[in-house]
Amino acid sequence: MGGIYVWGFLIVVVIGAGLITAGAVWKGRAVRPFAASRARSVARREYARDLRRAADVVIAAARRSAGEGEPAIVTVEAVVLTVRERYGYAVVERQHAAAALRRRFEHRRCAVDCVTDAYG
């Protein structure tokens, strides 16, 4: 009866070792793009997402730093600097940052208490 447990244990160990080996060999392949076009589209989506996040961060920081009754001043340059510093982009197009800031400015209803240069 003890032999059955030993064989069962060995089978479980062998299957586990096989799964670990397969995981080590195929690690990360499911998330890697298969084509250059897919890699470019993923990079574009991440860039747009990072611009949106940076615009939100800049708007929130401007609102916190504005005094009582003063408008929060949100600049495109602040968004560009935030994207460079936080997300590590070497080149950030000013027009892309301005477009992202305009979208987030309207989405967060900033016209009530904010001023921006994104429309200029």
Rank of each mutant, 00 (worst) to 15 (best):
R29K: 10
A30E: 11
A30M: 06
A30N: 06
V31G: 01
V31H: 03
V31A: 05
P33S: 12
P33R: 00
A35M: 06
A35H: 11
A36E: 12
A36F: 06
S37W: 08
S37K: 08
R38C: 00
R38G: 12
A39P: 01
A39W: 08
A39H: 06
S41L: 12
R44G: 00
R45M: 07
R45G: 01
R45I: 09
E46N: 11
E46C: 02
Y47L: 04
Y47T: 09
R49P: 00
R49C: 00
R49Q: 05
R49M: 05
L51M: 09
R52T: 14
R53Q: 11
A54R: 02
A54E: 02
A54P: 04
A54W: 01
A55R: 03
A55T: 05
A55F: 06
A55S: 15
A55Y: 05
D56M: 14
D56W: 09
D56K: 11
V57P: 00
V57K: 09
V58W: 03
I59Q: 02
A60I: 12
A60V: 14
A62W: 01
A62R: 07
R64S: 12
A66C: 12
A66Y: 01
G67W: 07
E68K: 11
E68F: 10
G69C: 10
E70Q: 13
P71K: 12
P71R: 12
A72K: 09
A72R: 06
I73A: 07
I73L: 14
V74W: 00
T75V: 08
T75I: 08
V76S: 03
V76G: 03
V76N: 04
E77M: 12
E77D: 15
A78E: 15
V79H: 04
V80Q: 03
V80D: 01
V80A: 02
L81R: 15
T82F: 08
V83P: 02
V83W: 04
V83K: 02
V83D: 02
V83G: 02
R84Q: 15
R84D: 08
E85L: 14
R86P: 04
R86Y: 09
R86G: 07
Y87M: 08
G88C: 05
G88V: 10
G88R: 07
Y89S: 10
A90N: 07
A90P: 02
V91R: 14
V91C: 01
V91Q: 11
V92F: 02
V92G: 05
E93I: 04
R94S: 11
R94D: 10
Q95T: 15
Q95A: 15
H96Y: 05
H96D: 15
A97G: 11
A97T: 06
A99D: 11
A100K: 00
A100H: 01
L101R: 03
R102C: 10
R103C: 03
R103W: 02
R103V: 13
R104W: 03
R104E: 15
F105P: 03
F105A: 03
E106L: 14
E106S: 06
H107L: 13
R108Q: 12
R108G: 03
R109P: 01
C110S: 07
C110A: 09
C110L: 06
C110Y: 04
C110D: 04
A111K: 11
A111V: 13
V112R: 13
D113Q: 06
D113N: 15
D113P: 11
C114L: 07
C114Q: 05
T116L: 03
T116H: 02
T116N: 02
T116K: 01
T116A: 07
D117Q: 05
D117R: 08
D117W: 07
D117L: 10
Y119D: 07
Y119C: 03
Y119A: 04
